[in-house]
Design a binder for these strands. Structure first.
Lengths: 223, 223
DNA sequence: GACTTTAGTCGCAAAGAGTGACTAATTCCG
DNA sequence: CGGAATTAGTCACTCTTTGCGACTAAAGTC
């Protein structure tokens, strides 16, 4: 990832790997030895015959030893802002990683999104866009589930939603909505987390259901 | 737009200009004289010091004489699919145009999205992504309003939503939701469209309102 | 055994959304 | 002219969804 192609890459593929550590989002950065910025997002200059998404997945493998549980293109970034590579254009991907499987290899570290070190302006824009993408697709895609391990308690799930939405949710309402969506199924395992009643473990397992038959929504404020 | 840079462009900016003609969406294509495909989306190879969005706006100006009323990046497309330019990567933009202001210059023609001629596979993917973007951001951004002229009747607006959603809506429900959203204000003009009672004209003019205080939505089906 | 903590459920009240029927203002046509 | 047809705009009823407090359940703590 860090070796530059001799003729100067025309574009790069960068990946914003995100996980949720307890009560904050975190982004994976790579340490640079000889670059102007000490840290950067994982990136590669595009290989011939590789799709963008494959490049992003390779970066994830390199950094964490496994692919992200969700990968999605954020967009193209350029516009004169500096980048660790010589690339004129960088294609950014969002990758979600459950906190459990998220053990970075040497040279990579998780940083809380609220407390990032300096990175190139272009990559900074990617991180901001990634967080926006997460929040805006929270109710359109199983984002929260991809940040959790394969089995989880309903309280875990609710806390993840609260973290991503940035607000508290009412327990009964949350579960009622979840039931109606047919998204989880119970396992026969229970988890006892110190004090309090043990919680049943669930697994993400979306079932067929009729698409809710709703009218128009005007959910935007501006512009 | 059609002249190739001598050294081969490394990437292009393509724009999917969309309008709504009566009861169908339409996309603007440019006629090619000496290309393999007879038609293509408007595109430019990137100029130095130009942002992507500016390139897209320039293309719109060239094709229609004015900028689109809404411009938004769709994403980066590449992955080995052929493109009219030599570009390895193409950055695609969606541009919305009200049907009234949508008079193409010579060499450009509107095509119904359901009945497009052959274009390069990469550009075909952009058109599909553009339509998806329109539909998915219909309740997140004033897409329908940007496809209408500055003043319109509520029936016009409802018909636009019906076109974009692909289903009929109930008049009373539609208006109730619109009222609650504080998005339009009445003008003092009325339009008499042949038979039937004249309709009042409205203008898009979103007002401040408290963000509706809603819980979680699980609106996705898969995966 | 009483208290605390976390899990999970129930049921009411308020808000939201689907729907048919109604009134209003205009043109069409005999 | 006068009634039918057509489009605009509103009302009121019902059913559904959602916010929320209160409750029961099962574990640990002291």
């Amino acid at each position: 990832m860090r070796d530059r192609s001799p003729r100067g890459a025309s574009f790069s593929v960068d990946v914003v790997l995100v996980t949720a550590t307890g009560n904050e989002l975190a982004v994976l950065l790579a340490r640079n030895s000889n670059e102007r910025e000490r840290w950067s997002l994982p990136w590669r200059s595009q290989q011939a015959g590789e799709t963008f998404e494959l490049s992003a997945t390779r970066s994830s493998q390199e950094a964490l030893g496994e692919p992200a549980s969700w990968m999605e293109q954020i967009g193209a970034f350029g516009d004169g802002k500096r980048h660790p590579s010589d690339a004129d254009v960088s294609v950014a991907y969002l990758g979600l990683v459950p906190h459990e499987t998220a053990s970075p290899r040497a040279g990579y570290t998780w940083f809380h999104v609220a407390d990032l070190p300096t990175i190139s302006p272009r990559q900074r824009a990617m991180v901001d866009a990634a967080v926006k993408t997460i929040q805006s697709s929270l109710d359109q895609a199983p984002v929260a589930f991809r940040l959790l391990p394969t089995t989880f308690t309903l309280s875990d799930l609710q806390q993840m939603y609260e973290l991503l939405l940035g607000k508290r949710l009412h327990k009964a309402s949350f579960r009622r909505a979840l039931q109606a969506a047919w998204l989880v199924e119970p396992t026969d395992e229970w988890r006892s987390e110190g004090r309090g009643r043990p919680a049943q473990l669930f697994r993400y397992s979306p079932k067929k259901r009729r698409r809710p038959h709703r009218g128009v929504r005007f959910d935007f404020l501006y512009p």
